[in-house]
Design a binder for these strands. Sequence first.
DNA 1: CGACCTGTTGAACTCCGTCAAGGCGTGTGG
DNA 2: CCACACGCCTTGACGGAGTTCAACAGGTCG
Lengths: 247, 247
Amino acid sequence: MAQRKSSNCGLHLVNTDRDCNTCDLPKKCIGDGLDKTQSESISSLIKSRGPFQAGEPIFRMEEPFRSIFAIQSGSVKVASSLDDGTPLIHGFYFAGELVGIEAIGDTHYQNDAVALETTWICELPFDKIESLCIEIPKLQHEILELLGKRIRYTNSTIVRGRYLSADKRFLLFLNDLYQRKGTINANGDRVVTLPMTKGDIAIHLGLRPESLSRALSKLQEEGIIQNRSREIQILDENQEVFSCLWV
Amino acid sequence: MAQRKSSNCGLHLVNTDRDCNTCDLPKKCIGDGLDKTQSESISSLIKSRGPFQAGEPIFRMEEPFRSIFAIQSGSVKVASSLDDGTPLIHGFYFAGELVGIEAIGDTHYQNDAVALETTWICELPFDKIESLCIEIPKLQHEILELLGKRIRYTNSTIVRGRYLSADKRFLLFLNDLYQRKGTINANGDRVVTLPMTKGDIAIHLGLRPESLSRALSKLQEEGIIQNRSREIQILDENQEVFSCLWV
DNA sequence: CGACCTGTTGAACTCCGTCAAGGCGTGTGG
DNA sequence: CCACACGCCTTGACGGAGTTCAACAGGTCG
């Protein structure tokens, strides 16, 4: 059985102490800055669940919406499909981030949320959260902020991405991923470990697997990235890789 | 000076009595089902503004975020641009719908909201709305629902649309538009009047004007639509036009 | 070992973008 | 009233990026 990353399953979930300037995903812990009593009333709502193994669903499309989920450790993809079966991947989420908030205000989830690796989550019953928001205005503000950020995040990735070529679109994605979960290893290399398949990335970017593969080969030839099986290394020294995205 | 559509600028803004099954945009009036006192406390917050002429901004990118806006009459496009000036159009909004909610939780607007025709709006100061949510749980629920719907709307249009060819992408857009503001004229024709240019539609769909123009010509040749200058007529009798989108 | 999944590469094709020209409607000024 | 300019839309020809189809390599797991 997998080891829990943290025994505390309060809403102070995972404190990634990395600054995140460019990505708009909720990074701050829900409940930060609340007093002790308030924190405790939130903690009492939470159900810890896990471990989910790779491929196991956290929730499924058409299940009644009851809870949002905070990822404690691991990673999750949010997916659905067109009626002909064409798969759609709406996003990938990691420790400290929330899934299920797309369903707020609806009776059912519209997507599947599937673990990409061994994953622990905290379940937050949304009706309880909503009630608590009445008592804790600061919490209400955070939830609203979270939803706003999610809308903006989609705009800055999907909408922007549409106007970019395959390789730039991947760089936009890589940049986002690096901000959210990139690491610097012992050699000082800037790397991003990929819990999802390249096929999944391709779908998420609106590309075919072959097209992404070609884009990756091209970027590697150009010395911009090092393309390994489950890891991308960012070679460009001055991070000018990404400058092309903003020009 | 343009005639006001309604002298009541409460939050019961515009009651389009059309059912809207497929589109996920907020259609119901904020504040529906509240009691008289509650309605009045909302009404007291509202500032009516207008008329805005075509091309006039409701709010601009980089302005501090203070209010969300309910469209009373007319129509609005929400746009921004890439750093090289490439225009992006995030959406079009009509009477009874809200703009500015993408900025919730941020300090500034990230988009321009521009009137497409003579337009009246109601300004809702968001800090006041937020405070009122504490007192009126039902209002809080509606705001949350609204934000959730906006996220789902983006997923069902932009994200889905990426996987469709130019003509199907337009049909998806037309379908949405027809649900939201389509009319049946005296001849029984199902028509959608377009307050925006075809160029704007193209950009919104992630296409070039030329590509959209070709798609429209093709759809007209196939007898699916009638393409007029500022109006699209849907010819297909059994609405099977759109079935291809769900197959 | 063989089945299977994931990723890569090649070749032909397709759709959309690009560039260029022209038509149409509107508004302005002579 | 007409002439002209301008913005919007359309059409044609061409090229290129990405898709499609196919074959194959490498890893994992039974």
